[in-house]
Amino acid sequence: MIKTALALSTLLLISGCAQNSNTAAPGSPHAGTSTEQSEPHHQITDQWVGRWIGVEGLFLDISKNEPAGPGHYLFEMQYGLDADQIGTFEGQATAEGIRFNREDGQHLLRAGDGEATGMKWLLEKEDCLVVKTGEGYCRD
Rank of each mutant, 00 (worst) to 15 (best):
A5Y: 12
L6Y: 15
L11A: 15
L11D: 04
L12H: 06
I14F: 13
G16M: 14
S21N: 04
N22Q: 12
N22E: 12
G27P: 07
S28R: 11
S28H: 02
S28E: 15
H30I: 15
G32E: 12
T33W: 09
E36Q: 15
S38Y: 03
S38V: 11
E39D: 13
P40W: 14
H42A: 03
Q43V: 04
I44V: 15
T45P: 08
Q47E: 14
V49S: 08
G50L: 07
G50Y: 07
R51K: 12
I53E: 12
V55K: 03
E56Y: 12
E56G: 03
F59D: 09
L60W: 06
I62M: 07
I62D: 02
S63I: 08
N65P: 06
N65C: 09
E66N: 02
E66G: 02
P67C: 07
P67E: 10
G69D: 14
Y73K: 01
L74Q: 14
Q78A: 11
G80C: 07
A83R: 11
A83D: 15
Q85C: 08
F89S: 10
E90K: 05
Q92N: 10
Q92T: 14
E96T: 06
G97M: 02
I98D: 08
I98T: 06
R102P: 09
Q106H: 10
R110I: 00
A111I: 00
T117S: 00
G118H: 00
M119N: 00
W121A: 13
L123S: 15
E124H: 05
E126T: 15
D127Y: 01
L129K: 02
K132N: 09
T133W: 04
T133H: 04
G136Y: 01
G136N: 07
C138Q: 11
C138K: 02
